[in-house]
């Protein structure tokens, strides 16, 4: 398997009502990450990309299964499977999430 570059680990932040609450209350940030990335790689990538060295306390990961969705009336398609990472930071640390 080719080596995963730190900047390729994190794909996008997940911004929803739930993750918004997590950001404010629990200081946790949720990302979609490369499916082959492990927790250590995710921790290093976050600290590098957002310039917060040593502020990542915990990383949890989970694979989000593919779901069946519908386009129109009768055509179904499968969404892709993806990896979600919940990164807990130390209190007081805030990330600038792509202008969000």
């Amino acid at each position: 398997m080719p080596e995963l570059h730190p900047y390729d680990v994190i794909r996008r932040p997940v911004i929803t009502e739930k993750t918004n609450g997590m950001m404010e209350e629990l200081n946790q940030y949720v990302f979609e990450v490369d499916p082959n990335a492990n927790k250590i790689q995710i921790k290093d990538a976050v600290e590098l990309v957002f310039d917060v060295p040593g502020q990542v306390v915990n990383v949890r990961t989970m694979i989000m299964p593919a779901k069946r969705a519908r386009r129109g009336r009768k055509h179904y398609f499968r969404t892709r499977q993806w990896k979600k990472a919940i990164v807990t930071l130390t209190e007081g640390t805030k990330l600038q999430l792509f202008n969000v």
Partner: peptide, 15 residues
């Protein structure tokens, strides 16, 4: 997307 109607915070709406 990702929010119920009327529940999005100010910064998300701005974006």
């Amino acid at each position: 997307p990702g929010f119920r109607q009327g529940k999005a915070p100010y910064n998300v709406i701005t974006k």
